[in-house]
Design a protein around this nucleic acid. Structure first.
Length: 599
RNA sequence: GGUCCAGUAGCUCAGGGGAUAGAGCAACAGCCUUCUAAGCUGUGGGUCGCAGGUUCGAUUCCUGCCUGGAUCACCA
């Protein structure tokens, strides 16, 4: 049992013994938290909520509780009551033995699953195949990937799933523009990455289409009508019909262009260090769900309009009516998701299905969950939409069609260039060979990018400021990587000098504020991971790693490690440094960020 | 208009019923013959959007309002 839980238990016992309160409800009134750093102590009990039991002043109650705790919890060395807060100080032996525990088990953090062992399917990435990935997709991928790692680390079985949106009018737009303006060029012939090439034609379509709409409105047509009647749009629709009717030429071009895109995506995923256990294609799954809707219709859950379209009425749930099948009997977006959700629960039997999808889809997923419930699936409650916020630019939203996006490949390149430049300036990698140098620079660049994205609460929108965001100082990935590399360097030196590390046999060692601060942070790592899993929020881990790194740097600045002359102290500080490094690697690892041993 | 989310320092973001609200960036001033200066230290910068309510205690919870965003398609 951890010390915090122990303290809570003893308080409960104290309340019973001192104030004869048997109230089970009192448990929720017991507040035990970590003591603020500027106040003497390790854990703090808030006494105000307990006054109703003691019917005494905060000072007297605090004093009685403090004394009781000190007498009944051997780890507690002393207590001090300040303004209604009992600040408890733990005996150093507790911290030293905790550090020993970490030191003796190298994989202390990773070999202790602390969560429920569920099978969790997590869908993320799910790109459209008509354009390359941009910063928004990077956020999606990083959150999905990190969340997978976090959930896995606490003992769940995780299935990473990607549903590629490979069909639809948007792809037809790229295809059409390519036929019109492409002159048969290929990624190889012009040396352009496939996803970018296809994206170029998507933008091209939009430009030409806008011209047509402008021309038509100038001739007196309303904007709405012009948007509908523009020849390019009509042709794109025709192409979608041809695709759906399996027209060989259309399918051939579709396969060719999608192939280019997949090759491009694979490269970007690879650079980001992202992989999937399952990749599904919407062209193969989009027909799923239709039967479920028809079955629901005959069960009277849905209704058919006079034109043949099928609807669900969610006004009772505070939402609107939603179309489930078009009047021509074809599926819409939500129909597909009904089908794929069912398909997934049938085939993979997950306990939970998490969709990592932008918050613009909140309504969609609300509707999806309600429909699944109406259809009577008991797993409807296990659908979870991890709704993440948009990445915006100072100028506003990114729009692929208008080319106002921060491209994924570009930003990665830029980060690598910057990392290389800074490394060259600092000259610390000079004696390494080119391969190692390149690898480390890449690690730093991606660390910076990933950390930058993941340190922000996924739920919140974030603003990307190009000039300021590519930073390698302060609250950044490289700062944490640097701290790690620094510790590695110290540990290497200690090994070279044959300094003995390992179990500390002494029970007592006067520890300074930095040292206890570091151990306390280390102590809380596990609960941070567990919180980040239950909140589905990698940012908690990111911010924890930053805090730990900062605390370590302060310690490192103030106190010698190898050069400490007292042998016990030196050993202790080396163990502490090793523990910090191991937590940093584990924590950052959960964000999908690698840690360089030199930088 | 309905629904959902957000509003904390000049900027980007943490925090969150509890003690004096924190970082980074930007600005300024310091610290490298000593374990990696991508580091450390200091200075300035705040009516936690506004108004009520609950509470011993509210920046945190509730209600209303203001502002910004998303969404409410026979697009996906």
């Amino acid at each position: 049992m951890n010390i915090e839980a122990k303290i809570r238990n003893i308080i409960l016992q104290a309340l019973r013994e001192l104030y004869h309160c048997n109230d089970a409800l009192s448990e929720s009134l017991i507040q035990v938290e970590m003591t603020r750093p500027d106040i003497e102590g390790d854990y703090t009990v808030v006494v105000f909520p307990l006054l109703r039991f003691s019917r005494k002043s905060p000072a007297d109650t605090g004093d009685e509780l403090g004394r009781y705790l000190k007498n009944n919890v051997p780890e507690i060395l002393s207590y001090q009551v300040i303004k209604g807060f009992v600040n408890l100080r733990l005996d150093n032996f507790y911290w030293i033995s905790f550090l020993n525990e970490i030191t003796e088990n190298k994989d202390f953090w990773m070999t202790n699953p602390i969560g429920k062992q569920d099978t969790i399917m997590i869908e993320f990435s799910s790109p459209n195949t008509n354009k390359p990935l941009h910063l928004g997709h990077i956020r999606n991928n990083l959150i999905g990937n990190s969340l997978s790692l976090i959930l896995k680390s606490i003992g769940n079985t995780v299935i990473k799933s990607n549903l590629v949106n490979d069909r639809g009018i948007h792809i037809c737009k790229s295809m059409l523009a390519y036929i019109r303006f492409g002159h048969g060029e290929t990624p190889e012939s012009i040396g352009r990455k496939g996803d970018h090439l296809v994206g170029d034609y998507y933008v091209k379509f939009d430009q030409e289409y806008k011209k047509e709409v402008n021309d038509l409105t100038r001739l007196g047509m309303s904007e709405e009508e012009a948007a509908n009647k523009a020849p390019l749009m009509q042709e794109a629709r025709e192409m979608l019909r041809l695709w759906e009717s399996n027209d060989p030429d259309t399918r051939k071009l579709w396969q060719q262009m999608n192939g280019w895109v997949y090759k491009g995506f694979a490269e970007t995923y690879d650079r980001l260090g992202i992989s999937f256990d399952i990749t599904d294609y919407e062209s193969e799954t989009y027909h799923l769900g239709k039967q479920l809707v028809i079955a629901g219709l005959s069960d009277g859950l849905f209704s058919r309009d006079t034109d043949g379209s099928v609807w669900v009425d969610l006004t009772g749930e505070g939402l609107d009516k939603k179309i489930l099948l078009r009047s021509d009997g074809t599926s819409v977006y939500i129909t597909q998701d009904i089908g794929t959700a069912n398909y997934r629960f049938n085939n993979h039997k997950p306990d939970k299905l998490i969709y990592v999808v932008g918050n613009e889809q909140n309504y969609h997923f609300q509707v999806l969950a309600l429909i699944m419930k109406k259809l009577g699936y008991d797993w409807a409650d296990q659908l979870y939409h991890l709704s993440y916020g948009m990445v915006e630019l100072p100028s506003g939203r990114m729009k692929s069609r208008e080319g106002t996006v921060v491209d994924a490949d570009d930003i990665i390149d830029e980060m690598i260039d910057t990392a290389a430049k800074i490394s060259a300036e600092l000259g610390k990698l000079n004696e390494l060979n080119e391969d190692d140098k390149t690898r480390i620079i890449k690690t730093i660049a991606l660390g910076a990018l990933k950390y930058f994205i993941l340190k922000v609460d996924p739920k919140k929108n974030m603003t990307f400021i190009p000039e300021e965001s590519i930073d390698f100082n302060g609250n950044t990935g490289p700062f944490i990587q640097y701290t790690f590399a620094r510790i590695c360097s110290v540990l290497r030196k200690a090994e070279d000098l044959n300094i003995i590390t390992g179990h500390i046999s002494v029970q007592q060692l006067p520890l300074n504020k930095r040292e206890t601060g570091l151990i306390k942070l280390a102590h809380s790592f596990r609960s941070v991971v567990s919180d980040s899993a239950s909140d589905m929020n990698p940012a908690l881990i990111a911010n924890f790693c930053y805090e730990l790194a900062r605390e370590y740097n302060q310690f490192y600045h103030d106190y010698p490690v190898i050069k400490e002359e007292n042998e016990d102290y030196r050993k202790f500080r080396l163990n502490l440094s090793a523990a910090v490094a191991s937590i940093l690697r584990s924590g950052m690892g959960l964000l999908g960020i690698e840690m360089p041993e030199k930088m």
